[in-house]
Design a protein around this nucleic acid. Structure first.
Length: 493
RNA sequence: CGGAGUUUAGCGCAGUUGGUAGCGCGCUACGUUCGGGACGUAGAGGUCGGGCGUUCGAGUCGCCUAACUCCGACCA
């Protein structure tokens, strides 16, 4: 085993360290010079682009359009919605001046004290306020509704503690903001987008998620109801992978957005917002990776198949290239992204390790033996199994294999998630079980204060109130009262 | 913002009681290699995070400062 990989393995006891090293070594991202920000490197960004493209298609299919709103938000906007203020008025970057000047002592530049802004601008932590301020001018009648807008953007939250991909000071995301004439329609939209996220996570990222509703404690500031998808990472911690909020009329009231309904009466608009971020990349990495590096689901891998020639001479390389060319062509025709790595400055063993680290789903290797036998070696990244097969029919095999890998890593993730999900009936058991990580499923009838106490005592929070499975009744894990509410607790990122 | 740790070559690190700066990987050249991160030989690469001090002399001791990482509080 390579030295670097040994280093990775030896750090298993510290998952986040392993994760950071892995992310950097797989060439996805690194910390930038700016506190808590990250540079997403080309290979990492290629994965993000795949995520973006697919999600965007799904948004379009559900009738949404893209728009763009300003990065800067006047401070006063953030004061308009009371709960929103409470949740977002802190931990924001604030622009106070608009000009620099040369330092009088000649050492670089200083902020020009003359150039102070009358009203400070907030670098958006999320765009509800500026968007609702804009929507006010777009909406007069029920005929103007619904508005189904999405924005791809960056946002800034001056977090105390940051973590590559999972919690960076600046992150990329999409935020959908919709306006509706009726409560039912808005609620339906919020739930629809949750389904879109869940489908994307499971079918494309191969990350199983639990759909649910946030408890009051965990709800988005300014929302009436927050829906979420929760994923389970390999270290037993939960990760909120996406949220969809039913905002009621809160923002419409704060920004005075009314419309005339069919009965010629003024009414406040109903709203939703929903978003997923580059945190999805964190989920992807932490859900599937092993000690050899990333494991990418084929549907999101920038390169799905890599072909490595093994040769002793230029003549042999030429002979291999000749055999490989039609395979590359045929794969491309099927829409499979393939890289033939005939670079002469790296050796096959090095390439093998490198592409494993990067999570390429399928590797084909062809050498002298294969030339003689008309075969090719096929390796799948998810199981690391190798197999030598005839060149004939290899393209169809690879296509089938990609589907199988996609399914297999999903199945593995589901099996893992299920294996760390347990039912807990009382708080004493809860306290010992939570130490082992994973989801603890229990009936819950406690108060927000009870939730706070549990968080303080065990570091666990209610990840979500389960949408389904609420048919039966049981006794609350803490209070013993009978309830229908079933929740998932976990420690989370 | 509290607690702990780190900062020395591109990367990962060592550096003893204070005495001219080291190792591994990588990099450059040549040769042998090439089916799981090859090897040999010869090279290049550093104002030791920054500042002030103690000292004949500081990577090493003292004070200040900055950045990063981890653990908390906060959050997607």
């Amino acid at each position: 085993m390579a030295k670097e990989l040994k280093e990775l393995t030896s750090r298993e006891e510290n998952y986040s360290q392993w994760y950071n090293d892995l992310v950097v070594k797989a060439d996805l991202a690194e910390n930038s010079a700016v506190r808590g920000c990250m540079v997403i490197k080309p290979y990492g960004y290629a994965i993000w682009e795949k995520i973006q493209r697919k999600l965007d298609d799904m948004f379009k299919e559900t009738g949404h359009v893209n728009a763009y709103f300003p990065l800067f938000i006047p401070k006063s906007f953030l004061s308009k919605e009371a709960d929103h203020v409470e949740g977002f008025a802190k931990e924001c970057a604030v622009v106070t001046h608009y000009r620099l000047k040369t330092n009088p002592d000649g050492t670089g530049v200083v902020v020009d004290p003359e150039a102070r802004l009358e009203e400070e601008l907030i670098v958006r932590p999320t765009s509800e306020t500026i968007i609702w301020n804009t929507y006010k001018g777009w909406i007069q009648s029920y005929r103007d509704l619904p508005i189904l807008c999405n924005q791809w953007a960056n946002v800034v939250r001056w977090e105390m503690r940051t973590r590559l991909f999972l919690r960076t000071a600046e992150f990329l995301w999409q935020e959908g903001h919709t306006a509706h004439a009726t409560e039912a329609e808005a609620m339906e939209e919020a739930k629809r987008m949750l389904e879109v996220y869940a489908t994307f996570a499971e079918e494309f990222m191969a990350v199983p998620v639990v759909k649910g509703v946030k408890s009051a404690n965990e709800r988005f500031a300014g929302a009436v109801e927050t829906f979420c998808i929760e994923a389970m990472m390999q270290d037993g911690k939960a990760l909120q992978a996406g949220t969809s909020h039913f905002l009621g009329q809160n923002f419409a009231k704060a920004f005075d957005v009314q419309f005339v309904n069919k009965d010629n009466k003024l009414e406040y608009v109903w709203a939703t917002s929903w978003g997923v971020s580059t945190r999805l990349m964190g989920a992807l990495i932490m859900a599937h990776s092993d000690n050899n590096g990333l494991v990418l689901p084929p549907k999101l891998a920038p390169i799905q198949v890599v072909i490595v020639p093994i040769y002793k001479s230029i003549e042999q390389l030429d002979a291999i290239s000749e055999k490989v060319a039609p395979i590359v062509e045929a794969l491309k025709k099927l829409g499979i992204s393939v890289k033939y790595d005939n670079a002469d400055n790296k050796k096959p063993g090095w390439k093998f390790s490198e592409y494993e680290l990067k999570g390429i789903p399928v590797r084909l290797a062809m050498g002298g033996r294969d030339l003689e036998n008309g075969t090719v070696e096929v390796m799948r990244r998810d199981t690391l199994e190798k197999e030598t097969r005839p060149v004939e029919g290899i393209v169809a095999h690879v296509q089938m294999l990609l589907d199988e890998i996609q399914f297999n890593i999903y199945r593995k993730a589901v099996a893992f998630r299920d294996s760390v999900t347990r039912d807990v009936a009382d708080y004493a058991t809860f306290k010992t079980e939570i130490e082992k990580g994973g989801f603890l499923r229990c009936y819950w009838d406690g108060s927000p204060e009870d939730e706070d106490r549990i968080k303080e005592e065990t570091k666990a929070t209610i990840r979500c109130i389960l949408l389904h499975e609420a048919e039966s009744e049981g006794k609350c894990m803490l209070t013993g009262r009978t309830t229908k509410r079933l929740v998932l607790f976990a420690r989370s990122y």
